[in-house]
Design a protein around this nucleic acid. Sequence first.
DNA 1: CAAACCGTGTACTATGTAGTACATACTCTA
DNA 2: TAGAGTATGTACTACATAGTACACGGTTTG
Lengths: 117, 117
Amino acid sequence: MSEFGAYVRDRRERLRKADPRFSVRQLAHRLGVEPSYLSKVERGETAPPSEAKIILLAEELEDDPDMLLAMAGKVSSDLQAVIRKRPELFGTLIRELKDMPEHAVLRLVREVRDGTW
Amino acid sequence: MSEFGAYVRDRRERLRKADPRFSVRQLAHRLGVEPSYLSKVERGETAPPSEAKIILLAEELEDDPDMLLAMAGKVSSDLQAVIRKRPELFGTLIRELKDMPEHAVLRLVREVRDGTW
DNA sequence: CAAACCGTGTACTATGTAGTACATACTCTA
DNA sequence: TAGAGTATGTACTACATAGTACACGGTTTG
């Protein structure tokens, strides 16, 4: 079940309708990969690319990189680095928030950002 | 600079003073690996083991698995799964808390747990 | 003093990751 | 109707990961 490829293909084809620079060949060129490789990725014939390529892809498709990485079954290495620096702290926090509703977590984020507490 | 191996060796040798079951051979056996492999890992001659083995190791050494994984340059796959389910939400949260002092984050954890908010 | 246990050196391997290189066939368009 | 652009099929590869298998020489113990 390779969600990632299908999503990228759909996204690229949409953009292509307005801009011919979004052909497999030209996009692949901008990403620095072979067209045949991008083609295989989009059809799910091959695993998603590396984190670096996915981030470039997110920029091209104007998508959130964390979301695209998630679809590829990955977590951004900079987030991992934050966790690795204080593993018990962030481990506890994330497990605590695991099943919290979206709005509750969002409120937390907002409070932290605004220093409302 | 392989912190991981040195830490494990130190920990194991300490435990060994009180309990001969913590020889390289016997511990390796309980982990389900070859003694020579554990020996190499401890001396940093080889990269740290897989996540699964590190978690077993944490149990044996009575250490926090998140911490041991972090020393091995990894982040627990169950934490990754939590992030991957809501990547933008958790991405934002973690980056927001990245530089927060320990006590502030801890307070947050406590408040969430107690429902004090 | 031999059996059992100890750590380690050497050689090898299976699987996964992240792609490249080239050929082929189709479709516009000037 | 030739040439440019398009996607895709096939074959191959370099490097990392996560170990195994076995032999060796040293030390402890019954």
